[in-house]
Design a protein around this nucleic acid. Structure first.
Lengths: 337, 337
DNA sequence: CTGAAAGCGCTAACAT
DNA sequence: ATGTTAGCGCTTTCAG
């Protein structure tokens, strides 16, 4: 292993001169600087991040906290796509990504402890229970954080626009002639609450009174529970003409159930998904769904976190909302009567 | 920030005593050890991984190299599911996961340089072009590696059993009465070659002569290219009764094309996928597909790497093959004639 | 323009 | 059973 010291010896200069050359300090003659750089490259020098971090207190490493109870975390395309864009953006700005967990070996560490232990410059938090005390601890710590789809006081967040999402969906359905609209929603989270509020509000704005039993509990990314809820809806005397699902994936459970009932999607009942997973465009009938811009969300999260890391005093916490768009597929029939 | 030194002061012992207490050294009285641990906890002490790594040369950090050109890397469920199980397994053994790339900030680093820079104890490599000189450099370096679905001399690898995969598929199809079997395969990789070999071999073993134009080039995780290949197959005078796809996702492109031709999956043409993504079980018709045990593969990769890291001299490189299984869905019709 | 020296936080060999 | 000490590889004042 080549150290700065070895280069110094070979070049007959001091180690500090080598350090300066390698880091592009201005108070060094180009000649020596270049000579040192050449030798360093020749010797196959690779700097040691750990030593550097120890000295500078900057790791250029971003923690990512994704919890996947029910392992829905990484498998959910919304998150895997987001993770990917976080990774790409962070790397382009010179930051690495390390996963944060609260289990590292035998002894449990809290998320904060884990992030501090690794010296993360900041942490992006998504797909977790934001009421978890450990999450709260991390967010209130000295480590900068950016949360996704949840906002804490004094911390930046990137929010997928769930309000606009349900608003667009409902308005579209109304335009298509639907007024008996059911909504199967995911487990209670901040996101779910927003969607519910927006759902009710937009229905009301359109003069639609939503029967209590048109709104069903489901689970995100869980086709079975949405299937079950679908069955209940289909068995009602006065059943809805359209069902909104918590996500595209869950909608598949609904479709199966609809077909089991001898009904046909589109002809007999309309359905709308959420997320806009890639598959939604390849499957037939193509899904009508609200596409979340997960790539943009990931990118902005990385940008915002890095901005905060690099300018802690001048960067103020902000909530950035990212709009999606409605993908008009072939699962919503225009009703005329 | 609390350092070992602060604890030492408070406890009126030396810093080495504190270090020993915290690391459970045996040559310390339980009494002092416990006292020190208590004080450390009270003070909210969090060790500094970087300092520790600098001293011990062990980072307890595993690099993961997933390249996602075409961004198919993380979005492909085979890999995201594998990544997840790598993460879970590594964490349970006290290792963190950091992504390795060859772009860190302005200056490009090779994969090896990146891993060495971060002091990774080892690297798991998947979803890359294994002929890339940078990958070869990493594999031949002093950093332990485990590769997935590709074997290098003297390095451990975890192989999804693609030979058994195509064998099982073809044998099943033959059992179902098919003999006109087409195969759309992914881009040329070691995996593709294995599948092709096994495809031809098993066909031959069953006395089936495969027409040259029954074997088509496609791309992994790319419904369009498989759709195109499907069209070509459907337009043949003597078209196949069954098509095998590179993966489930690509099969969706095939399905769309089949329907465009006014044909019906199952009734008019049989199809088989690969991977066994979760969706394949929820979609209707349920996919007949070869399920790869990505979770097991990820787990074993982490285990094997950690084993090599911890016992570099006694752990010998091995190739571990992980079998999958055929999921009999409803996309293959039994032919009787 | 270059170098000396201190020290980041920790571990571990070696005293005592 | 506890303490002393050196040093991991690097950056960064501060002096020259």
């Amino acid at each position: 292993m080549v150290r700065i010291k070895d280069i110094a010896q070979k070049c007959r200069v001091s180690i500090s001169t080598v350090s300066k050359a390698l880091n592009g300090a201005s108070d060094l003659s180009d000649k020596t600087a270049n000579r040192i750089k050449r030798v360093a490259a020749d010797m196959g020098y690779i700097p040691n991040a750990n030593a550097r971090v120890l000295k500078t207190n900057r790791s250029h490493n971003i923690g990512v906290l994704f919890v996947d109870n029910t392992s829905s975390g990484l498998k959910h395309e919304y998150f895997s796509s987001m993770l990917n864009s976080i990774k790409v953006e962070a790397e382009s700005k010179g930051f690495d990504i390390t996963f944060i967990s609260n289990l590292i070996g035998k002894d449990a560490k809290s998320y904060y402890e884990h992030a501090a232990y690794r010296g993360c410059d900041g942490v992006i938090i998504a797909s977790v229970d934001f009421t978890d005390p450990q999450v709260v601890e991390l967010v209130n710590s000295n480590i900068p954080t950016v949360t996704i789809d949840y906002t804490f006081n004094n911390r930046s967040s990137i929010m997928s626009d769930n309000i606009a999402g349900l608003e667009d969906i409902v308005n579209y359905l109304v335009k298509m002639g639907h007024s008996k609209i059911a909504f199967i929603h995911g487990e209670e989270t901040a996101v779910t609450n927003k969607r519910l509020t927006s759902f009710y509000r937009t229905c009301k704005a359109n003069g639609i009174q939503v029967p209590e039993d048109y709104v069903k509990n489901g689970l995100y990314h869980h086709p079975q529970s949405s299937g079950l809820a679908t069955r209940e809806l289909l068995e009602m005397k006065d059943r809805p003409t359209c069902i909104i699902y918590p996500d595209d994936y869950s909608m598949l459970g609904g479709i199966t159930e609809i077909e089991k009932h001898g009904l046909k999607v589109y002809d007999d009942i309309s359905i709308v998904g959420y997320d806009g997973i890639e598959l939604s465009r390849f499957i037939r009938p193509m899904f009508t769904t609200y596409v979340q811009d997960s790539e943009q969300i990931g990118r902005l999260a990385a940008d915002q976190l890095i901005e905060t890391i690099e300018n802690p005093l001048t960067t103020e916490a902000q909530m950035i909302t990212v709009k999606g768009h409605l993908q008009e597929g072939k699962t919503v029939k225009a009703l005329t009567n």
